[in-house]
Design a protein around this nucleic acid. Structure first.
Lengths: 203, 203
DNA sequence: GACTTTAGTGTCGACTCGCTACTAATTAGC
DNA sequence: GCTAATTAGTAGCGAGTCGACACTAAAGTC
């Protein structure tokens, strides 16, 4: 049996832009290509993924998780998905490529499935947003990740019951309509039983 | 950069034995060692995992899933978790090693975490049981995987409401107590909205 | 000032869950 | 046999949650 070429780390780095999800791609690429790097012989996959994010963006991801190892063309690809806040600028030679709903395939689909599967356990939606956000922003992110509409009142009620956010004194006005209150991610420490929010069940 | 040694497929094959979970280990091994095989240069990781199961057990697993790729000692290990029915005999040179609750570490802990994370989406508990089973058996398997007690009446009510099982005409008596009715895994086709069972929420 | 748009709340009815308390069918002990 | 113990299974209540609808609130637009 021939020795395999070195496995590669492949990165799906996701953010929230212009009301849709976007993924970071090398600027020159056609279609959706993802950044990658060889996995050094002695390094941990997690460390290699973190290093790749840092090399491209200049700073660490707000959240990241391994999706899995799979055969991609000729060599072994270890796919990671990472999340960065909404206001992150694309570094030189890279660009954010918008993801129209449902339109993804292969690696990207697997990465988004991972986000969706973990959204009720990890603070993924909060990492996609900045420090402060409106509840409408947050709901829109959940709707994009879950690919379904949520009911406004139920969403707010569940969120507040879980003590995941706390209101600030700031309000944001964006043209039309009543200004929205800004909230901050502030999960209350688990004393006693903490209520989980099953956003995937919410209507 | 030096070329990596070929990645290995590592298998955590789980079954249900004597009221606890058990994992398949090479008979000679001390502690908990898991079967493994090199990943051929051209094969898909999923195929290699299936082949490893087949080579050891002589037949396919009832369910399997990749846990992830991680550095193990010197080379890259791609960990898989598989499930086989309760009555599966250990093949020659292998044995079932019981898993007292909570007592697992490293690879095994990650494999069990994967089972737990997927138990409400995939029919993992049903694959751990044989063709027919009592609801008490099923509840015990769920309790082992979730590592917490479930309430009998709530468990049954949720299970039946989700139309996951259907009763047979058979009953099984095992010494003391009233005989239990045998059930079969029979998920009803998803017409309209199907009710999901959140066993992880059940008390 | 009337209309539109977006944010946020009140509340009702249906459904769900945890629990207690019960019934049912078998074996074990005397 | 009779009684106790053991395991299987059911009934129903009270608390809590969810989805829907209808409403109020505060901004811009014409």
């Amino acid at each position: 049996m021939a020795a395999s070429p070195s496995p590669r780390i492949v990165l799906a780095c996701v953010t929230w832009r212009n009301g849709e999800l976007a993924v970071l791609t090398p600027a020159a690429s056609r279609g959706v290509t993802l950044p990658e790097a060889p996995l050094g012989g002695a390094s941990l996959p997690d460390d290699a993924a973190d290093a790749l994010v840092k090399r491209i963006l200049g700073r660490a991801a707000a959240w990241r998780s391994q999706v899995g190892a799979l055969r991609d063309e000729t060599s072994l690809a270890i796919l990671y998905v990472a999340v960065v806040p909404a206001d992150t600028e694309a570094p030189t030679r890279h660009e954010w490529r918008g993801l129209p709903r449902g339109t993804s395939s292969g690696l990207l689909r697997a990465a988004l499935a991972q986000l969706r599967a973990r959204i009720d356990r990890d603070p993924i939606a909060f990492r996609l947003l900045g420090e402060r956000f409106t509840l409408s922003d947050l709901q829109q992110v959940y709707e994009l990740l879950l690919e379904r509409r949520l009911h406004k009142a139920s969403f707010r009620r569940s969120l507040l019951a879980a003590h995941l956010v706390e209101p600030t004194e700031q309000w944001r006005s964006e043209g039309r309509g009543r200004p929205a209150q800004l909230f901050r991610f502030a999960p209350r420490r688990r004393r006693g039983l903490q209520r989980a929010v099953r956003f995937d069940l919410l209507g």
